[in-house]
Nucleic acid binder design. Structure first.
Lengths: 219, 219
DNA sequence: TATGAAAGTTTGAACAATCAAAATTATAGA
DNA sequence: TCTATAATTTTGATTGTTCAAACTTTCATA
């Protein structure tokens, strides 16, 4: 059985694969994401490779095998269902559930996860809009763009917030940018590093490019 | 921070202290309870002693310090609240919740545990009748006797089932011996190793001494 | 009182996960 | 093409948890 550290590594590799265009995930990326030393990643990645969860190319990077992807998707399913459960059933603030789920994703049984799934009505996405893999490990990644790339002057719907930091999530909530919110990009200024938004009630609001890239809208 | 292994050891020592009359818990008891080799217990108990959670007397046994007891009670509180939550809220069978709780007790945060406690109405006991320690680490151990020692011919109420094995719990449920059930001991036979019971509806039923010692009634 | 079985301890080894620091490789820019 | 820098890998060590097997202590009883 995979240790919870192994689960963390495969999940991390899956998530890094998803946010980049290249095939291989670098050791450095993983080291930063998991806050461990680079050498630690190299050695752990080798053991992932030994157990058939990843294929490792020295000095180039690592890629999940289908077994590794399967495991990672199961962990992700647990993580996201737990998050939604904590918000919907336990009434915990959406900015705090990520940290809780990070722990619980390793110790929740299949029985319990499927009970949660049922109770929540087989939801498609978690509170941040991230898609929940099915128990068979299928995910549908809806087509989205960020506020950095979406068309200007068109009404859009926020579908996902791609950052789990409580501070950011609290701002998102305060400013009415949670998934489901409707808004429009009025303009962008590369020089000023700002994206000017108009929300449903015609209120203006601006975000820096970095923040804007974390708000995903339908496209 | 205490590892989950350390939590398991202090919880185990607390539980063993409770089921015996003597002060010190032996290495052998712990080894059996946790299914580890005797030598492993000796070395772990030394590290518990080093971190101030227990006091260790070579060849005699181990005893929790107040810090150790405090930690153990917190773990026990988490375990028992999780069990009750799983039964009451998640609808999981009471014979299965022990195993689930054994995992979750190490990864549920204080925030979540207190939310559960609230949601369940600050319950006093878990589904097996075991008392739930408060967040301050207080437990009230109600006076109980087992069906082996209780008076004969008096109506009694089951308050606790002191065995977590699913098979036993399922039998208890089938035979209507869950906490809250009313019954009477009609007779005991040392030779036959049986305790003859009469339940509310005047149905007779018998248990072996071993099993009878696991059913606790008010006294 | 002596002794042998049961209980406990020690020893040496293993594995998982980690680090710091030295060594190696890759690569972008001169 | 060469080289300095960044990224990666290796090395050697540490911590936590575990085991089997050798050894020691305890204690009941012959």
């Amino acid at each position: 059985m995979a240790t919870s550290t192994v689960e963390d590594y495969v999940k991390c590799i899956l998530l890094e694969e998803q946010v980049q265009t290249t095939e291989l995930v670098s050791m450095g990326q993983i080291a930063v994401a998991l806050s461990v030393a680079p050498g630690t990643v190299t050695s752990m990645v080798k053991t992932l490779a030994d157990s058939g969860l990843a294929s490792y190319e020295p000095y180039s990077g690592v890629r999940l095998t289908s077994a590794g992807r399967q495991l990672a998707l199961h962990v992700l399913r647990r993580h996201r269902l737990v998050e939604l459960f904590l918000v919907q059933v336990m009434g915990i603030d959406w900015s705090e559930v990520h940290a809780e789920a990070e722990l619980l994703e390793h110790s929740v049984s299949d029985l319990l996860i499927n009970r949660m799934d049922e109770m929540l009505g087989n939801p498609q996405v978690d509170p941040h809009g991230d898609p929940i893999p099915t128990s068979q490990g299928k995910v549908n990644q809806p087509k989205v763009t960020s506020l950095l790339r979406c068309p200007i002057g068109v009404e859009l719907c926020v579908v996902r917030v791609a950052d789990q930091h409580p501070d950011f999530l609290q701002l998102v909530e305060r400013e009415g940018l949670k998934p489901g919110s409707r808004l429009e990009v009025e303009s962008r200024s590369e020089a000023a590093d700002t994206v000017l938004l108009i929300r449903a009630e015609r209120v203006q609001f601006s975000l820096g490019f970095r923040a804007a890239s974390k708000i995903m809208v339908n496209s």
